[in-house]
Structures are given as C-alpha cells and as structure tokens.
Amino acid sequence: EPELVFKVRVRTKDGRELEIEVSAEDLEKLLEALPDIEEVEIEEVEP
C-alpha cells in the first residue's frame, strides 16, 4: 500500500513561501519543528 503523501504550502512570518511534498510522518515532524509558521495549506496527493 503506498504511503500517504501531502503537498504542503507554507508561508512564514517574513513572507517566504515554500511548497513541498512530504509523507504523513514527516509532516508531523515539520509542524513540530516550525513554531513560527504563519499559514499552512495541506492537501493530500493521490498516489
């Protein structure tokens, strides 16, 4: 069974934007590691 992958769009407080694809596990780590995120948009990517 393929692992869930999420497309994550992040905007930081200083206005930088970042778009990455991460696994569910990595997404959890990412959110814990970035306390200064202003906006996060997450969508599931079809395998």
Score class of each variant (00 low, 15 high):
residue 1 E to G: 12
residue 2 P to K: 10
residue 2 P to M: 09
residue 3 E to R: 14
residue 3 E to Q: 13
residue 3 E to P: 14
residue 3 E to Y: 12
residue 3 E to V: 14
residue 4 L to V: 11
residue 4 L to D: 02
residue 4 L to F: 07
residue 4 L to A: 07
residue 4 L to C: 15
residue 4 L to P: 09
residue 5 V to K: 13
residue 5 V to Q: 05
residue 6 F to K: 03
residue 6 F to I: 05
residue 7 K to Y: 04
residue 7 K to M: 06
residue 7 K to V: 07
residue 7 K to H: 07
residue 7 K to G: 00
residue 8 V to S: 00
residue 8 V to K: 00
residue 8 V to T: 00
residue 8 V to E: 00
residue 8 V to F: 04
residue 8 V to G: 00
residue 9 R to A: 02
residue 9 R to N: 03
residue 9 R to Q: 02
residue 9 R to L: 07
residue 9 R to C: 13
residue 9 R to D: 01
residue 9 R to W: 06
residue 10 V to L: 09
residue 10 V to I: 13
residue 10 V to K: 00
residue 10 V to Y: 14
residue 10 V to Q: 00
residue 11 R to A: 02
residue 11 R to N: 03
residue 11 R to C: 07
residue 11 R to L: 08
residue 11 R to K: 10
residue 11 R to H: 06
residue 12 T to F: 15
residue 12 T to V: 05
residue 12 T to I: 04
residue 12 T to G: 04
residue 12 T to L: 15
residue 12 T to S: 03
residue 13 K to C: 14
residue 13 K to M: 05
residue 13 K to P: 05
residue 14 D to Q: 03
residue 14 D to T: 04
residue 14 D to I: 02
residue 14 D to N: 05
residue 14 D to R: 02
residue 15 G to H: 02
residue 15 G to T: 01
residue 15 G to E: 01
residue 15 G to K: 03
residue 16 R to F: 06
residue 16 R to S: 05
residue 16 R to T: 08
residue 16 R to L: 08
residue 17 E to I: 15
residue 17 E to L: 15
residue 17 E to M: 13
residue 17 E to G: 03
residue 17 E to V: 15
residue 17 E to S: 08
residue 17 E to A: 05
residue 17 E to P: 01
residue 18 L to E: 03
residue 18 L to Q: 04
residue 18 L to M: 10
residue 19 E to L: 13
residue 19 E to D: 05
residue 19 E to P: 01
residue 19 E to N: 09
residue 19 E to F: 15
residue 20 I to D: 00
residue 20 I to S: 02
residue 20 I to A: 03
residue 20 I to R: 02
residue 20 I to M: 09
residue 20 I to Y: 15
residue 20 I to C: 10
residue 20 I to T: 02
residue 20 I to Q: 02
residue 21 E to P: 03
residue 21 E to H: 12
residue 21 E to T: 14
residue 21 E to V: 15
residue 21 E to R: 11
residue 21 E to L: 15
residue 21 E to W: 15
residue 21 E to Q: 11
residue 21 E to S: 10
residue 22 V to P: 00
residue 22 V to L: 07
residue 22 V to S: 02
residue 22 V to K: 00
residue 22 V to N: 00
residue 22 V to W: 01
residue 22 V to F: 02
residue 23 S to H: 07
residue 23 S to Y: 08
residue 23 S to W: 10
residue 23 S to F: 06
residue 23 S to E: 03
residue 24 A to I: 08
residue 24 A to D: 01
residue 24 A to V: 06
residue 24 A to T: 05
residue 24 A to Q: 07
residue 25 E to Q: 10
residue 25 E to N: 12
residue 25 E to S: 13
residue 25 E to Y: 10
residue 26 D to W: 07
residue 26 D to F: 08
residue 26 D to K: 06
residue 27 L to A: 01
residue 27 L to F: 05
residue 27 L to I: 06
residue 27 L to P: 00
residue 28 E to F: 10
residue 28 E to L: 12
residue 28 E to R: 13
residue 28 E to T: 09
residue 28 E to I: 13
residue 28 E to W: 12
residue 29 K to D: 04
residue 29 K to S: 07
residue 29 K to C: 12
residue 29 K to P: 02
residue 29 K to V: 04
residue 29 K to I: 04
residue 29 K to Y: 06
residue 29 K to Q: 06
residue 29 K to R: 09
residue 30 L to S: 01
residue 30 L to I: 07
residue 30 L to Y: 07
residue 31 L to R: 04
residue 31 L to N: 01
residue 31 L to S: 02
residue 31 L to P: 02
residue 32 E to L: 12
residue 32 E to H: 09
residue 32 E to K: 09
residue 32 E to W: 10
residue 32 E to Q: 12
residue 33 A to I: 08
residue 33 A to G: 11
residue 34 L to T: 04
residue 34 L to D: 04
residue 34 L to N: 06
residue 34 L to K: 02
residue 35 P to A: 15
residue 35 P to I: 15
residue 35 P to W: 14
residue 35 P to L: 14
residue 35 P to G: 15
residue 36 D to E: 08
residue 36 D to S: 05
residue 36 D to L: 04
residue 36 D to G: 06
residue 36 D to A: 04
residue 37 I to T: 06
residue 37 I to N: 06
residue 37 I to K: 06
residue 38 E to G: 08
residue 38 E to M: 12
residue 38 E to Q: 08
residue 38 E to T: 08
residue 38 E to I: 12
residue 39 E to Q: 11
residue 39 E to N: 10
residue 39 E to L: 15
residue 39 E to Y: 15
residue 39 E to A: 11
residue 39 E to F: 15
residue 39 E to T: 13
residue 39 E to M: 14
residue 40 V to K: 02
residue 40 V to S: 03
residue 40 V to E: 03
residue 40 V to Q: 02
residue 41 E to R: 09
residue 41 E to A: 07
residue 42 I to V: 07
residue 42 I to S: 03
residue 42 I to A: 03
residue 43 E to I: 15
residue 43 E to N: 10
residue 43 E to H: 10
residue 43 E to T: 13
residue 44 E to T: 10
residue 44 E to W: 12
residue 44 E to F: 13
residue 44 E to R: 14
residue 44 E to C: 12
residue 45 V to Y: 09
residue 45 V to L: 10
residue 45 V to R: 06
residue 45 V to T: 08
residue 45 V to N: 07
residue 45 V to G: 04
residue 46 E to L: 13
residue 46 E to K: 14
residue 46 E to T: 12
residue 47 P to A: 09
residue 47 P to N: 09
residue 47 P to H: 10
residue 47 P to G: 09
residue 47 P to K: 10
